[in-house]
Amino acid sequence: MTAAAAGDAAIGAPARARRMRTPNDSPLKILCLAPIVIWYAIFFGLPLVFLLWIGFWRVENYQSIPDVSLQNYQEIFQNWVVKSRYGLAMLQSFWVASTTAAIATVLSFLIALALVFAVPARRQRLALLFVIAPFWSSYVLRLYSWQTILSKNGVLNSMLKAVGLDDWRLEIIYTQIATRVGLVHFLTPVLVVILYVTVINIDRTLIEAARELGASRWQAFTRVILPLSRFGLITAASFALIMGLGDALSGALLGGGAGASVLGKYPLYSAMLMTDYASSTNLPRTSALATILVVAMVAMMALGVWVAERARRRVSE
């Protein structure tokens, strides 16, 4: 081969490179992604746009009329602390959701730790499966069952009566405590999965090394396991918080609508939104309420990220 031939090949090359398809350059890329993109655009993107838009519609004579009015938002904010008291419901939601998230995360973390450290490796998968099992059963039915358990003459109280502990009757049905019970029961299987994966991936030799260096079990836990689980704990807690804020069922069925908490007898925002729509079928106002919930949640997440970022920066400085 001569140098000239090599030169020719080099000159002819760019055009050729365009003609031959690489494995990454295939019509299948478009064809395989098209269904999900189209379906999401029509049945996910478009509804969210409608949610925003309908919030600005008017209602006249029980008819929704497309418009660009702030009527719904004015009405909602006028009733923020009086009459419908949307703002207090929002506050109640944040209070109940954050306490629930904390309880559920701690409970799930303890279960995950017990699974990893107290169950022989061969049985762990089965043990984990049993923790997850309730997740596969109907949520509405589980809440119904909790109702029968927690109600005034329900299973728990009748059991207490049967053993003569009548004075210890539980009076928690239709309070936010019952709401939390339902939510924790719903959240635990999911959070255990997240935290089990976190804890099982901690290198056991690190714990042994800490013990070998003279750390007590408690120190090994606080200095090794806990820091290494931090990311999983944050993920689990955030997930629990979002689910808690968005859930309407536990608040409606176990919290009895406006269940009492230390803040007072206010409904959860999402439960209130549901009953509000059920009684009024005022879709524009419901859309506005839902939009406010989205904005509040996004703001909360942004705040969380900001705080975490600041804390991280302070540590690294």
Partner: peptide, 23 residues
């Protein structure tokens, strides 16, 4: 094999230029 493209150059099998032939 044709699983990777060339940036420049040419590939011939039995005299045929196969640089553009897909895998």
């Amino acid at each position: 094999a044709g699983l990777e493209t060339m940036t420049t150059g040419q590939l011939r099998i039995r005299g045929r230029d196969v640089s553009d032939v897909p895998v």
